[in-house]
Design a protein around this nucleic acid. Structure first.
Lengths: 186, 186
DNA sequence: GGTTTGACGCGAAGATGTTCGCGTTAGGCG
DNA sequence: CGCCTAACGCGAACATCTTCGCGTCAAACC
C-alpha cells in the first residue's frame, strides 16, 4: 500500500508559485484593502474555487505570502559581535515593516490573533528562534546578553507600534543602544 | 432662515446608543471575527440600512464604539508625582488591551492604518495629548521627564506587541521603572 | 507503461454583503 | 402649535463572496 496522502510537487507547487507571485504583484500595485481573492484568481490564472479550497480566506493566503517572503529573506547574522548582530537584526525588522510587507504582516497578524487559530506565522516564530539562538551563543561566549523578551519589548515593539500609530519609528541603532545600556555586559 | 444642517438629539442619539450597546454586548459574547452588521441590526432593533448610512462599514462602527468606550473611561491622573502617574497610566493601558476592548482597538487601528483615512481614533490622540500635558507639567515643576515618544516606545509599545504576538505582557511597573532608569531625573 | 487518486478547472447555485428609492416619523424652530 | 426636513424604517434590487458537484489532468507509486 502506498502512502497517497499529499502531493506537494509538480503542478501543485506551480499553482502556489503563480498565486504567490500574483499576490506580490497586486500588493505593490494597489492598496491592500481593495485586494480580493477574485483579483488574485484572475491575475494568476488559477481558478477562484482553488484559492478557497487551498487557503480558505484571503487572510490565510496573505499569511502564506508573507511567510514565504520573510522566510526566503536572508537569515539573522551571527558574526560573534552581539552589538553588531542586534543592530543588523533591528535594521532588518525596520526595513521589513516599513515596506508593503509591513502592512501585510500587521493585517495577517491581527487576523490570526483575532480568529480561531492562536498560532503565529511560522516565519515569525522562526525569526524568534534564530534570535534566541543568537543570544544563547553570546552567553556561551561568556557575555551577559539580554533575554528574548527584552529584545522584543525594547527593540522590536517600538517598530511595530510606529507602524500601528503611523508615527515615524525610532532609529534602530538608538533602540539597540537603549537595550544594551539597560543590560550592560557584566 | 434656520440652520437645519444636523440633528444630533432625540431619536438619533437613542439609535446610536442602542447600536453601541448592541456592539458592546455582541463583542463580549463571541469572537470579534464573526461579528457582522446584520447581527448588530437585529440585536439593536435598528434597521440594517441605517447602519450603512451612518457608519458606512463595520470598521467605522467599531471605531465609533472604541472611541466612545475609551472616552467615557476615566482620564489620566495628574497627582504631581510623575512616577506614580506613569504607573497608573501604564496600568490603565494594560487593562484596556487585555479585555475585549483590546481586540476591538487593535482591529480598528489596523483598519484605519490600512484604509483611506490616515487619522487615528480621536480617543487615542486625546490620550496622547493628556500624557504630553502630564510630561509638560512635570517639566514645569523642575523635573526632567522623558519625551512622549520615549513613553510610547518603552511603556506602551510592549503592551501592544504582547497582544499582537499572543505572549504574556511585561509588568506595567517594570516598564515604567525601565523608562525612568533610562531617563533619570536630573 | 499502467493504475490510483489528489488537486485543479469549470460553472452554477447559494449565501452574504451593500445600495437605493420611497414613505413615515419626529427633532428643531418660528 | 404647526411647518420643514433630517434621520429612520422598509424591502427590493444589486453586487460580491463562498460553496459545491462533476469531469479532467497529472503526480506518485508500482
Amino acid at each position: 500500500m502506498s502512502n497517497h496522502q499529499s502531493r506537494p510537487g509538480g503542478r501543485t507547487a506551480r499553482v502556489r508559485a503563480d498565486v504567490l507571485r500574483a499576490v506580490d504583484d497586486l500588493t505593490t500595485e494597489q492598496p491592500l484593502t481593495q485586494l480580493t481573492l477574485a483579483q488574485v484568481a484572475e491575475r494568476s490564472g488559477v481558478h477562484l474555487g482553488t484559492l478557497y479550497r487551498r487557503w480558505g480566506t484571503l487572510d490565510g493566503l496573505l499569511l502564506d505570502a508573507v511567510a514565504e517572503r520573510l522566510t526566503t529573506g536572508s537569515p539573522i547574522r551571527d558574526t560573534g559581535n552581539l552589538h553588531a548582530d542586534l543592530e543588523d537584526y533591528a535594521h532588518r525588522v525596520a526595513e521589513d515593516l516599513s515596506g508593503p510587507d509591513g502592512q501585510l504582516l500587521l493585517r495577517t497578524l491581527v487576523a490570526v490573533r483575532l480568529g480561531t487559530k492562536a498560532e503565529l506565522p511560522p516565519a515569525l516564530t522562526r525569526r524568534f528562534d534564530e534570535m534566541q539562538a543568537l543570544l544563547d551563543r553570546a552567553r556561551a561566549r561568556g557575555e551577559n546578553p539580554p533575554t528574548l523578551q527584552q529584545v522584543v519589548d525594547i527593540v522590536v515593539a517600538p517598530l511595530y507600534t510606529a507602524l500601528l500609530f503611523g508615527t515615524t519609528p525610532a532609529n534602530p541603532a538608538t533602540l539597540v543602544d537603549r537595550l544594551l545600556k539597560l543590560h550592560p555586559d557584566q
